[in-house]
Structure formats: C-alpha cells, structure tokens
Computed example of a mutant assay.
Amino acid sequence: MKLAAAVTCLTTVLLASLSALPAPAAAGQPALSDSLAAELVNAAGKEASVRGTGRHIAAAAIVRAQVLLDRAHFSAGEIDGAPGSNLKAALAGFQKAHDLAADGTLNAATWDALNSDPSDALIGYTVSEQDVAGPYQAVPDSMADKAKLSSLGFASIEEALGERFHVSPALLQKLNPGKDLQRVGEQIVVPHVEGAAPLPKGARIVISKAGRTLTLYDTAGKAIAQFPSSSGSDHDPLPIGQWKVNGISNKPVYWYNPKLFWDAKPGDASAKIPAGPNNPVGVAWIDLSKPHYGIHGTPVPAAIGKTQSHGCIRLTNWDVALLITAVGAGTDVVLQD
C-alpha cells in the first residue's frame, strides 16, 4: 500500500490563543533563568525538603521531571523547563498508571515514583562532525517551494539537536551558556532521553480531544504510554468513533491536495513534498481506517497540545517515532471528545 498517497492532513500550525500557552511565573516562583547547572537538575526532586509542589517549583526540578516522564513514555512533549498544560497532563497520566491520585502535580508520591528511574536527567554530549555538517537548509513556507527541495531536513544544528534530545532549542542554549554548538568537539549537556526502556507492544490507542492526549494501552487495558497531541478543529473536527490502524509509513512523502483544505490559497496546486523531519506530517504516518485521517509527526514540536489541526492527530516527531514501534495494522484506535 502506498500510504504516502493517502496523506491529506496538512499540519500548518494555527496560532494558539494566549490562554493555551504556559502561564508566566507566579510571584515568588523561580523563572527559567534560574540556574540550570547539570548537578542541580540531576539532584532536583530527590530530597523531600527541596521538592516543591504544583507550579511553585524551580525550573531545574521541572526539567528533571520532564526528562523522567519522557523516559517513562509519559511525555510532556518538548522539554522546555516550564510548567504548562502538557506537563500537567503527562503527570496526571503517569500518576494514574502508577495508581496515584491523578492531580497533575509534582507531589512527594509522584517524585517517589519518578525516582524509581535512577538515571541522571542531564548527561554530557560531544558535538560531532556530523552534527556540525548537517546539511542544514532554511525551510520555505509555501508548498510549491517545499516541493522543489530534495528533502526537508533540519534548518539548523539547534533544531537537529533539539529534536534528537526532545528539548526546545531555547532550553538547550540555556543549559549550555557560552557553548558553541557549531564547534566540533564542544562538550555540552543534553536531556538523557536516549537509552530508555523500549515501549511494549500496544493493543489500543485512545485519543482524547478534550485532554489533548494520545494514550496507548496494552492487552490488559493498562496505560503504557501517553503523549500530548493536537487533534481536530471547528473546520476539521476529529472523527469521533472507533477505527483501526491500516498501516504505517516511515519517513513519508506528503501529497498536498489543495482541494481538501478549506484554507488553501487561491492558485495553490497539488504538490509532492519530500520526506524529512520538516515534512508537514513529520517523520511517520499511521494510516487510519477513516479515509484521509492519520496519526503523524510535526515540524513544530512546541505547538503540540496547544494548537488545532486539520482533523488528524499530530504528535512530536519523537513521540510518533516511538509509537510506530509499538503498533501496527489492526491496532484499535478510539477517537473521543
């Protein structure tokens, strides 16, 4: 099956309302500019006296919690060191899976469960020749210009390292003040997201429109992974119901058909968009039995869980790449309000 030909869900990111963005720091709450030295991040949340709760917690502790949640497959999306709806949902999902009160806060019981993973949240990394070489190329806005490229790779080394380590480029810079990411041999610190336990095979995917999450369950009905998602809009509502996975396309080509999009510009023509992480559907497409709908990646990870889509279910590239290791043709998919 040529799954790429079935791809019709454009991932042009709609602007999020201010209410959907993470709230600013409350009075007395440490800002992101607080010290994020690796030793402080790696120690955060380990001592009851310095854990903090809810939103009143240092950025170092938030970073460590986001990394540990990622390693446990209950992703908060892009690791950014800031509180917000994605972190709250990830904590609630993790808590529920561990038989804790699912209030979405970083309380003592949740830290105890997260600390069952003894790994450091930040580890050292040496910038390689391949990292610096890229190649990198600016990504044009229009579909017609995208179609002229041979691939849709990363635009910068910051974007490439950010995606590899599931971290926002802004936080990567804050974690490495004074470091030159474009120098071969530069020693930096990155989130320890590689080498986590593999995701077991799943039996059922549930997408919650209201919760802005995708949850994967095993055959016993236990949640084994949760990812933030963007799904549906007023123009292109999520097709509520029960469906199946038809198949999976890794590194898909995207076939743009302007006739399928209410917001297509006059004069837009059909186009074949090359594969790559900046492809409109990212690095993977999970084809659903509902025609023209799928679960896929995105070139804009910071928008996941904060914007709407053209009906499909959008995840970060790294989350969809993990999901395709655990599902396949025939997996049940439930789309719900």
Rank of each mutant, 00 (worst) to 15 (best):
K2T: 11
L3K: 06
A5T: 13
A5D: 15
V13C: 05
V13M: 09
A16V: 02
A20N: 10
P22G: 09
A27R: 08
G28Y: 11
L32E: 15
L36Q: 15
N42W: 05
A43M: 09
G45M: 05
G45C: 07
A48L: 06
S49Y: 09
A60E: 14
R64H: 11
A65K: 06
Q66P: 09
L69W: 07
D70I: 00
G77D: 08
G77E: 11
G81L: 09
A82D: 15
A82W: 10
A89P: 03
G93K: 01
F94T: 00
Q95H: 02
K96M: 03
H98L: 01
N107D: 15
A108P: 04
W111F: 12
S116H: 10
D120Y: 01
I123N: 14
G124T: 14
E129W: 01
G134A: 04
M143A: 08
A147D: 13
K148S: 11
K148H: 06
E158F: 04
A160H: 13
H166C: 11
H166Y: 14
L175Y: 14
L175D: 14
K179N: 13
V193H: 12
P198W: 07
G202T: 07
D218Q: 03
A220T: 12
S231N: 08
S233A: 00
I240Y: 12
G241P: 03
G241I: 01
Y254D: 10
N257R: 04
W262E: 09
K265C: 00
D268P: 00
D268M: 00
A275T: 12
G282S: 10
D287E: 13
L288A: 04
K290F: 07
H292C: 00
I295A: 09
G297S: 05
I304P: 12
S309V: 01
H310E: 03
L315G: 09
N317I: 06
V320R: 09
A326F: 08
D337Q: 04
